Each structure stands twice: as structure tokens, then as C-alpha cells.
Amino acid sequence: MLHPQAKALLDLIEQRGVPATHTLSVTDARTFYRERRGFTQPDPVEVAEVRNLQAEGPHGAIPLRLYKPLGGDMDRGLLPVLVYFHGGGWVIGDLDTHDSLCRQLANASKCAIVSVDYRLGPEHRFPAAVDDSIAATRWIHKEAPKLGLDASRLAVGGDSAGGNLAAVVAIALRDAGDVPIAFQLLIYPATDMRRGAPSHTTNGQGYLLTSDTITYFHDHYIDDATHDLDWRASPLLHPDLTNLPPSIVLTAGYDPLRDEGLMYSQRLSESGNRATHICFERQIHGFITMGRVIDEANAAVELCASQTARYLSR
């Protein structure tokens, strides 16, 4: 059953006539996503340090934002770090839309968080976001000591499109062998661009993220249908998922992406990896950033933070 708080939010959205993302221009969709966060997201919590940085990548500069936690063990050594990729369908979202979440994760995990402002479609089509995400993670690993970070305790994570990018980065860096990843945090990740899993039908309308909006995001990111079969777009389709870092895959019961998250976690387990799948059965896509109006969002943040801390502990 749908959580009453999630249902109340959906009812309010309908009553107020809030426009669906797929009905907006890209510019308006980005502005709306950024501005509406104040309604559903908790107030930003204080952290020990916030610093804007810039990595270099194959397509140019990549903005980053570093968060260091209150109460972190900074005086005793370098902080473990989670490289975080925001959600938004590879089309919307930025450092500000996920600022509150990154602050929460930093304080709750006692780890540093580096949020990555990767390039978005349609201005920058696939695989630009992938290229930026890999380059940013390599840069953070290289510059870690200068930033007070422990390169040997580096994780990747993200929500939705960001979960997709985190999974892809973990595979790419495993294959390259130059940057060890200790953990991957995949929050309702998109893993299969073919969009054929049953939950795309059962949850495709009425639960905030709709099939129409998924198509809108897909078509602004992917401009060639053959790219749906590229593992850098659909990590579920990679033929070899062995020797990947431990993972937590979090899904939501009323999410169109639910089943592909479950299938990805199952393939990770079958391939011999440590993979834990956790489904918040009563929740909708995007709920983890909605802690102002959905209590289970805050529980999910605490869960993600505790697992990140566990896998990045010495």
C-alpha cells in the first residue's frame, strides 16, 4: 500500500495542478525542479565545511562541491569520501537540488561527500554525463590528499540517473584498474534504457515519475536507439558484473524503476559480489530527498549513511 504521506503529496500535486515535467521546456523543467525543493526537502543542515571545486574532464571543466561532516575525524587523518551523482534524468538537477541530501549524508556517515555537476542533455548527449562522472571520480582520487580525503576509501553513489552513473563508473574503473572503488550506493537506479521491466507498466502513471516523463528524459539524453544497448547507458546489460565493489541498491515500491533496480542487485549477487537490495515498499520515486513531508525519507538517508560508513571504515 502507498504510504499515506506519499499519497498526500501526490494528492496535493494534483489539486494544485502542478505541471508534469514532460510538459515543460528543458529550461522551465530545470528551474521548477530547483525551486520546488523548498517544499519537500528538509532545511540544509550545518556541516563542517563546504567548498566548491572544479575537475578537468574530456569536455572541459566539471563543477564539484565538497562537504565535510560535523564531528568527522578530520584531525586524526584523511576522511573517507563518497562521490555523489545527482538525479534528474540526465536532463535536470544540479549541485543545489541535492545540497540538502549531501549535507545529511555527510553528517550522518561522518564521511566527506563530493557532489558532481556533470553535463546534462540535450545540450550534451550520452555519453557526456558518463565521461564527466568518470573523469570527476579520477580527479577526486588523484587530488584526495590535498583535499583531506582518503583515496583508499572512496565510494560512488547517486539517485535515479545518478545511480545509473555511479553503477557505470564502478564498472568502468574496475575495467581500467586505476581507481579502486570501495562501495557503491545505488538509490533507485536506472539500469536498463530499454524500459521494459514490468514496473514500468504497473507504476507508469500516477506516482510522480511517469512513463511520459521517463521518455522525455530518455529522448533528451539518448539520441540514437542503439545506445540503449550500450552498457554505459544500461549497466544491467554489461556481460560481466564480477569483481565489483559491495553495493546497497535501494528501491521504492511505487517506482517505475523498481524492477530494474532489483534485477541489477540480483545480477550483482549472482556475479559473486556483496549486494544488498532494500525496497521501501510504500514509497515513490524520488522520495529520499523529500524528508520535509515523508518521514521514511529520513530513515532512508540514515540507512544509506550507515552503510556508507560501514563499507568505508578502516
Rank of each mutant, 00 (worst) to 15 (best):
D75N: 13
G148A: 07
D94A: 10
I214N: 04
N273M: 07
A176F: 04
S234C: 07
G148C: 07
F287S: 12
G87L: 00
A20Y: 06
I214P: 01
T289N: 15
D228Y: 11
S269W: 05
H220D: 09
A252L: 00
G93W: 02
L2G: 13
D73S: 02
Q205G: 13
R195P: 06
D150S: 01
M74F: 11
D255W: 00
E270A: 11
T289C: 07
T31C: 12
A297M: 14
D228L: 07
V168M: 15
D175E: 14
H3M: 08
A167S: 12
R16W: 13
D178C: 12
I278N: 00
L312C: 10
A172L: 12
G77P: 11
F287E: 01
A299E: 10
G148Y: 06
D223A: 14
D192F: 00
R292V: 10
W231A: 01
T226K: 07
A275L: 02
G87R: 03
G87V: 05
D228W: 03
P42I: 07
D230T: 05
V156A: 15
G158Y: 02
G121R: 08
L268F: 08
V179E: 04
R16Y: 06
Y221R: 08
H277E: 00
T276K: 08
I171H: 12
F85W: 11
E260F: 01
F126Q: 15
R310E: 12
F287L: 03
A190Q: 04
G148K: 07
L186I: 04
G158R: 04
H227E: 06
Y33G: 03
S269E: 03
L186D: 00
R267T: 15
L12G: 08
H285D: 05
H227Q: 09
I113M: 05
S133D: 12
L185I: 00
A135C: 06
R153C: 09
S247W: 03
M290H: 02
N107W: 11
H59Y: 14
R195T: 03
R16D: 05
D150A: 13
D28C: 14
Q104L: 04
Y67S: 09
Q283H: 05
L237A: 01
A305Q: 01
Q41F: 03
I171V: 04
L237F: 14
V130F: 14
Q54G: 02
G163S: 14
A29E: 06
I248M: 06
L257I: 07
T191R: 00
D219M: 13
V114R: 14
F85S: 13
G261V: 00
A197K: 15
L9V: 11
L95H: 05
Y188V: 01
G77M: 05
A8K: 09
V130T: 14
G157W: 12
P80V: 14
H59K: 13
L185K: 00
Q41I: 03
G93N: 02
P198T: 12
L12T: 13
T137R: 09
V301D: 01
G158I: 05
V45W: 08
G38H: 12
Q15F: 09
L209D: 09
S234A: 06
Y221D: 10
G204P: 15
I181Q: 15
R232S: 00
K7C: 15
N203H: 02
Y84S: 01
R195A: 15
A197F: 01
D240L: 11
G60Y: 09
G261S: 08
F85M: 08
I222G: 15
A108S: 15
L66T: 08
N273E: 07
T276R: 05
